[in-house]
Write a protein that binds this DNA or RNA. Structure first.
Lengths: 219, 219
DNA sequence: TTTTGTGAAACGCTTCACAGCG
DNA sequence: CGCTGTGAAGCGTTTCACAAAA
């Protein structure tokens, strides 16, 4: 009930994983689950699960556990998965095209509504109904279609410039596929997908003979 | 000089970022850099940079900073970037093909040496000199070509099965592109690239009106 | 002076452990 | 009993702050 519950970062990062697991449980018709059981499925302790979930209210019943559907719906709301998210993609290269081909997401209300590119040769090409537009159309399109998410799939050297244009256009969330640290102003969120970084970290782990993942919470 | 310096996980995750920055500085002909300056470039404090770097020896000079080339070479060695890494890709779908087209990595000694797929229609197709092979060839190929890294770019439902086959074949590092938690035995490293998770976390951040990234260290 | 390397303090997250509820 | 919610303890990481080196 606090106005700003201040969710710890690690908790925020785990939320999507809870949500995925809950989705599966709902689909499987499971009615309740204990923090212990949820923890086992995700490689966490029961205490961790309980702490995380209490940030969103008293959701469980002592002696019983959590109502699967109730928890699912709460997380769906908290994560903003109960709305439609329209995204504008910039960059129609390999990664961009792979995203356009993918498109259908799990509980899917993420939509890549438009594609932009600065390369004239890419412009005009249709990708599943979305025709590649020139960059100078970005701003008006974002405004007209209430786009909130921008996906950056351009060469690293152009990334910051594209991000600046997106923010200028009114986008407040950026999904970054380039291996670059991007500066954003207050009020703009960033999430990065960097497979070269993942590969480099993997090589490091293999060099050291480590087990498991650098991201994982201790198993 | 300790036999096992026990590098903190957060430090390990930052190493590749230092390395990238150093690479750029080397290419730019820069001779020295201070921890403060390195920190600014990566969104870290100077103290953080110094703490991280001391895990690999006394590398800096008071009053001067760090010798760019020396630090670069040390990190290159620590990260295992002074060797060639051969990787086997399983899955010739959208993501797999994007990887095959990408291929050239920064200081590039990562090579996707072979591609495998279980779909007969994909087999035999050439991707930049690498012909897609059937899954039953994986084991012998890995053994013959000293492959240490396996890249999983198959549908989520097939992921664990593919991972098991890779480990069976002797692969010790797995780069996972599926949105699944994969179980691996001791001695096997995993690194995941999950853009649906990144997108979900982004939506959450936007919902909350947060600034910055969940991954970032505080700026 | 500038800047490193580093103990010590501060911080944040996880785990513990248990009161209380069903 | 089983299980949640939670204050408090424990632990790992970051930040501070300064002696020492260039």
């Amino acid at each position: 009930m606090d106005p700003k519950p201040k969710i710890p970062r690690p908790t925020a990062k785990r939320l999507s994983r809870y949500f995925r697991e809950l989705k599966q449980l709902v689909d499987a018709g499971r009615s309740t689950i204990s923090s212990k059981q949820l923890g086992v499925a995700l490689g966490l302790t029961g205490a961790q699960v309980r702490k995380d979930l209490t940030y969103f209210g008293q959701l469980g019943s002592p002696g019983v556990g959590y109502d699967v559907e109730r928890l699912y719906l709460r997380l769906r709301q908290v994560l903003g998965r109960d709305r439609v998210w329209n995204a504008a993609l910039v960059g129609a290269g390999n990664i961009g095209r792979a995203l356009l081909a993918y498109d259908h997401f799990t509980v899917g209300e993420f939509h890549i509504t438009a594609v932009f590119d600065s390369d004239e040769r890419a412009i005009g090409v249709d990708h599943g109904g979305r025709v590649v537009q020139p960059m100078n159309r970005l701003s008006s399109f974002v405004a007209e279609h209430e786009i909130r998410i921008g996906i950056v799939a351009v060469p690293a050297s152009a990334a910051q410039e594209v991000v600046d244009a997106m923010i200028e256009a009114g986008i407040t969330g950026i999904l970054n596929f380039t291996p670059r640290h991007l500066d954003v102003q207050d009020g703009v969120s960033i999430s990065s997908v960097d497979f070269t970084l993942a590969l480099e970290q993997l090589a490091f782990q293999v060099s050291l003979g480590l087990t498991g993942s650098l991201d994982d919470d201790p198993s």
